[in-house]
Structure formats: structure tokens, C-alpha cells
Design a protein around this nucleic acid. Sequence first.
RNA 1: GCGCCUGUAGCUCAGUGGAUAGAGCAGCGGACUUCUAAUCCGUCGGUCGCAGGUUCGACUCCUGCCAGGCGCGCCA
Length: 576
Amino acid sequence: MLLNLLHAHVSQALDAARAAGELSWETLPEIKIEVPKDTSHGDYATSVALALAKPARKAPRQIAECLLPHLQHPMFARIEIAGPGFLNFSLAWDWLRQQLRELHAADANFGQQPEADTHRYLLEYVSANPTGSLHFGHGRWAVLGDCLARIMRKAGFSVSTEFYINDTGAQIQNLGSSVKACYLGHLQSLGQNLSEDNSALLARYRAEKDATEKGPVQFYHGASVQVLAEALAAEYGLEAGDQPVSFFSDFAKARILAEQQDELEACGVRFDSWFPESRLHAEGAVAEAIETLRQAGVTYEQDGALWFRSSDYGDDKDRVLIKQGGSTTYFANDIAYHWNKLQRGFDRLINIWGADHHGYIARMQAAVQALGYGKETLEILLGQIVHLYRNGEMVRMSKRTGEMVTFGEVFEEVGKDATRYLLMQRSADTSVDFDLELAKQQNADNPVFYVQYAHARICSIFRTAQQSEVMARLAADYTSADLGQLTAPEERALILKLMAYPDEIAFAAVLRAPHRLSHYVEDLAAQFHQFYKQCRVLDEKAPALSQARLFLAESTRRVLHNALTDIFGISAPEAM
RNA sequence: GCGCCUGUAGCUCAGUGGAUAGAGCAGCGGACUUCUAAUCCGUCGGUCGCAGGUUCGACUCCUGCCAGGCGCGCCA
């Protein structure tokens, strides 16, 4: 990585200057290396001399003067002291050419970094209830989590991904009741007589569905419930009316889960594991977790409930683990789940949650600490809400009517590439307004096409080369190109941008900010388009230059392909 | 009331305490006999919500306000 390399050089120069007695300091400030906005300030720059002014009690420019003699390396063509004391690095052409060759040789592995740390990360995201289709908000977390996992792996972190299935509890019960009610309605319409209990259930279901004023909703009324009831009738016939609600909920949740899995798969989102909440209950893990907290002395009984002293760990107030009725809270179950993750050997837990769950963070982190783990063990990434629009009008979702646009419908309509790109393009901290018509119509203006077009253009150059015997020969043997032919500023800028790829990945991984890579890739595509315009690749009169440019173009294609397919999870078309 | 997020060009948004705050879209003006014009070049456009503070230096950090969103259950 280029930044690491520069960092090492600066660090060594500092040590050398100190050893020579030219500089002294108590605490060394962070060495920051950046790409200057103004190209006349070199390819990279550091402000370390400014930061060191106070600790070293010396003027910044003087400090820079001290460092200069210790910064000797063939990679530098020139190092200048500028402004208040910046060190501006200009990299040597020959060194850049050599780096380009190495980048090309690394091929698909370019950007892949060695082990970044020894932790084992578990990234949990989406984790929707199996009570209905995934909505578009889930889609944002799906894309975000998937891209983050890809980026972190590329950056050398060991990451496993998991989907937590909330397959127990009242919502599942309600789903089962709803499906049963629809099923009973079906039987009734066929002239079957219903038992007293069944009639009552059906009546309650219909009453809630037909209610005009708003109130608490118990049942599910979407069309999908009807579909589930019909599917059940098709599979089990008309004799299931006496089956308990659990029979219906088991059927429904299995179907819904399968649908969610299919949709995620179709969108290129693959989880390493699917963890059902029911397993925790079956294994007695919830009781065990509660007992562990009890023995740690962080619980107490009050008002017939068992409480966890989460306020001792920074939460606003204490939280209930076991309710008056004796059943456990969702929170208690979640504690057991997180403990389970830790017991499986993951020592870094990252969860992606919707911003509406932020009030839940403090208690969850309190629980992890109470179980004996450090504060840094659990990291929660909050994503802001996403609004769906169609022709400028917000698409409203209603739980009562079950009216909603599912994630699957959106990416079927908009396309996987554009959907994924538009969702990962924005920082998780910003709410997203996603207009379906815009996402589709945008085509030419959509940045994803801009990037893909650069890739297709490069492929096109190689196709065109086949039409001429001379060019075809050069293209076939482009790896033996004399890169010394590359001298243009556009070529240099493109190489520098390519070299930055691993640094961008590392940065995006550490910041947990996938959106940063979309900006990088757009910059890279822009840099290529400029090169394409300014530097003709195939030129019969300059075969050596043509070959060198083919080498550069192919290297660019490899990085674009790598980013599009490995990081963004979208296609890298050869023609558009 | 308390907590979290957001506030940057007409719009959508980037921006690691550093040099003259950037990009795309929209607007205006240019560039196709030449590897894909889904492209490129130029130009217009700013009180970085407001006010203080910290320092060599603040869009960035701190405090207080203003505006918008979300959340403050023995729901999940």
C-alpha cells in the first residue's frame, strides 16, 4: 500500500533526524499523509512538520528541512517544502511504471491485503422477522452489509456474516393466527361448518380488517397472508382446520424465510449463516444467559419481574429480562444471542441496525460488558431510513392493509446493478430518497453506468485491435510493453489513481464506509475517460506507445472489474 | 424534556484538524472523417444552519442555540 510505504519513509526520517540530534520531542503526533487537492503540490503530501512544531519546539519549515536529507529513495523524483511547512512528494516516473507492472501482475488479487488484525468479526445485518416480505429498508441494510463484508475481507479482516431469524414470539403467533383465519375463511366459502373457536377467530380477523378507525393491529392483512393460506390448502387439503396455530405459523415462516432467502440471493447478498432464535430457546441459552447475569450480581427482582442493572453500564435506566408473567423479553433473548456469538469464538461483533433502533444500543452494549467483554466488542452501525418515491410521490407503507413495495419488486423493476449501486453510494448516516422512476430513467445520468461504460470502453479497444494485424499482435503481447513510453500527464494521473485502490479499500473498511469506494471508482472512471480522450491507444504509427497504453488500459480494466464485481457485487459489462 | 442522525452550490450529495471547500445533475458555451459522444473541455454557481470557543490553522473538535428526521415499552 502506497500510504503505508510513505508513512514508513516519513517515520524513518523522523527517527533518523532524532537519532542525529536534529529533532527532539516527547510525544510524536500522528503522521498524516494525503493527496493534495492542488496537483502543483505534488502527488502526496504530509503535514507532519506542522504538527511537530510544538512538540519539537521548532518552526515547521525548519523541521521539514531536517527531514529532507533523510528522505532518500528512488520512489521520489522530488520532495519540496511548501507553504507553511508541508512536505510535497512527487513520485518518480520509473517507480510508478514499475508499480503499474506489479499491479497488473497481481491481477484479481490487487487490493487484497494481508491479515489486518487477529480478531474474528461477525457482521449481523437485515435480520428481519419471517412475518412478511423484506421491505426496501431491509434492502439498504442488505446491500450495505454485503458490501461492507466484501470490503473488510479485501482489507484483510476475518469476517463472517449472519442473518438472525426472529422466528419466535408474539408476531409469529399473530402471523399463524392470520393465516389460519384466511384458511378458515376459505373453508367457510366452500360451505364447511366451523367450530366455535374457529368461527370466533375468523370473526375477529375480519372485524380488524374492516375497522375504519386506526388502532392497534394484531393480525396481518396483506395479500401475502391470503396467498400463504391458499398454498397451505393446496399442500394439506381442507382438513387442517383443527390444527393449532403453531401449525400455521410454522408453515408460514418457512415459506416466508425461503422467499427472503431467494430475494437476497437474487440481489447477490449471501450470508455465511442463518441463525434462528428458536435454537436459543431449544438449547436453554436464554435461561443460561440470564443465570449468568444473575450470578454476576447485575440483576434484581422488582414488581414481580427480573431486572438487569444496565444503568450501571451507561444505559438510561435498568431493563427487564423476565416479565411478570414469567416470559423473557426480546432483550433477554438478544442477550443470549449475542453471548452465543461470542461463545462461537467471534470477538468482534458488528451489527447493522435501522436508526429507529438506536435507543437499544446502550442496553445491548451494557449486556455485553456485564457478560465480561470489553466495550469495543460490540459495534453498532446505524443506517438512516430510506424513503421510496415514484414520480416524486412518496410510496406509503401500511401495516394495516399490508400495502408495501418489497425489496424484491424494486430490484426487479430497477435492476440489480442500479439498485445496489444507488444504495451503497450514500453514507449510512444520510437518509435516502429513492425514486423508482428516476432510478430506471436515469440510465445515462446514473453513475453506475458511467463506471461500467469505462470498463466496456476498454474491452472495446481490445476488440478493435483485432481488426488490424499489427495491433492484434501488439495486444496479444501487451505484457512485454515498454512502459517507458508512458509520459503523458493523463497517463500519470491514471496510474496514481490505480495505485490508490488498496488504500481506499483499507480506509473504507476501517471507517465502515462502503460509500467511499463508489466515489473512488467514479474518480477512476473519470480519470480513464480523460486518458481515453487525450491519449489515443491504438496508433499504427506508434506501435510501442500503443502497446504501453494497452498495458495501462488493461490494468485499469482489471481494477474496475475488481471493484465492480468483488466490492460492489454488480456486473462489469464488456459492451454497452 | 432527554438521546441519536442530518443541515455544504438551484437539486442530489462527497469531504482524514491543513494549502484557493469539491463532484454529479440542472444552466450556459464548446469538442465526433479518428479506439463507443452512456464521453471530454470550458463557464456560471458558496455567510459550509447561526453564535461563541479551542489553535499556528476549523466544514472538521468543544459549548450554546435554530431547523428537519428518528427514538425514548414488562412490544418485537
